[in-house]
Design a protein around this nucleic acid. Sequence first.
DNA 1: CAACATTAAATGTTAGAACATTTAATTTGC
DNA 2: GCAAATTAAATGTTCTAACATTTAATGTTG
Lengths: 150, 150
Amino acid sequence: MPTLEEEITQKTFRNEGQKAIINIIYTGNWLTARHNKLLKSFNLSEQQFNILRILRGQRPKTASLLLLRERMLDKMSDVSRLVERLRKSGLVEREVCIHDRRSVEVVISEQGLTLLAEVDKHINKLDKLSQRLSPEELVMLNTLLDKVRG
Amino acid sequence: MPTLEEEITQKTFRNEGQKAIINIIYTGNWLTARHNKLLKSFNLSEQQFNILRILRGQRPKTASLLLLRERMLDKMSDVSRLVERLRKSGLVEREVCIHDRRSVEVVISEQGLTLLAEVDKHINKLDKLSQRLSPEELVMLNTLLDKVRG
DNA sequence: CAACATTAAATGTTAGAACATTTAATTTGC
DNA sequence: GCAAATTAAATGTTCTAACATTTAATGTTG
């Protein structure tokens, strides 16, 4: 198992705290890269995948673009065009809200649901592989990460 | 302190393992966002900052573009133009290698070193703030993260 | 040493992110 | 009820990441 120092080719860290921060960022990027590689085989970007999951979670309700923007993990200014691309791919449907015509309501399509279910299967398999930790260790890890964010 | 569930507006996770993976990615993005915000005030991107740090670590040796590409945390195809932008800003110097004229050697400039020192001060201060963990907890966190990557 | 293969960087192209600005609909205050 | 303020989305623009392709230099092999 390569240590973090070997992987990022840095001799030593000033302290464990510094190392922990780099380690979190590095491990997060590592996990994200695995996910993105998989998503790409389905022609999905990370952002598109996030939107689809939010929409599935909302069902059978619709979600406005505003709501989508708020829920995106890294807040996107550009949800309009992102959703438009998903619509062109047939994964979502959108229509102007009757009650407030400024607002646009979006729902995931059948095709979107089917695709998402397929992707989920693969993602779950992928994520399981990286669970070399015991249940106790996982709880501990979650607790520590929550502490980092204060 | 908001829990992860609240922050990403998801009711429950299927299990602690799933939660841990999301938690690592989320916390990593959270830390990165803090860094990027700071870097932006120095007109630096994350990638540019990484390159400068690698170059400082190499001193007084030079680094080829190839070496830089290998060392970048998320491997960049586009180091050529990235370094060119740094050169235009006066932060690095570059010249074609005498022994192998295909290769381009890069060094950080005095101006680059000065800037980097300043940025480092701020980053360190920022990173300290998020250390609400004891030394033992930090060691534990690092161990667990290394385990995740296997 | 000439032809070919390989390597390093540069360049071309496309799509997406980040930012501001504009447009259209609604709400508010008078 | 109307003008101004606010809100939601659309659009414009610029910069960068990601991808492929090209160019130039060096290695390799017969």
